[in-house]
């Protein structure tokens, strides 16, 4: 497995979209590749940070509503 591919699998794993075989290959790759180990560690940290911060977003419809309201006021 090449590093590029390993990082891709690592990214996918953060969203639980990697296959079992891919994860096995990644684990093997990580044994001998310190650069990817570093990336994987960071990537996991980022995922954890995002999880604990429990961010929420406004839905697209509500955003459009806000935009419309703002637009109305601007063109008045």
């Amino acid at each position: 497995m090449k590093c590029e591919n390993a990082n891709h699998v690592c990214d996918k794993s953060q969203y639980k979209e990697s296959s079992f075989l891919e994860r096995v290959k990644l684990t093997i790759h990580l044994i001998y590749c310190s650069a990817c180990r570093k990336y994987t560690a960071r990537n996991k940290k980022l995922s954890n940070a995002l999880k604990t911060s429990d961010l929420k977003t406004i839905s697209k419809e509500d955003k459009n509503g806000l935009k419309e309201r703002l637009h109305q006021e601007m063109t008045k």
């Binding site: 961010l55 929420k56 977003t57 406004i58 955003k63 703002l70 637009h71 601007m74």
Partner: peptide, 11 residues
């Protein structure tokens, strides 16, 4: 730039 507010800051 009020027209960008919703996209940039609402979340």
């Amino acid at each position: 730039y009020p027209e960008t507010w919703v996209d940039k800051y609402s979340d």
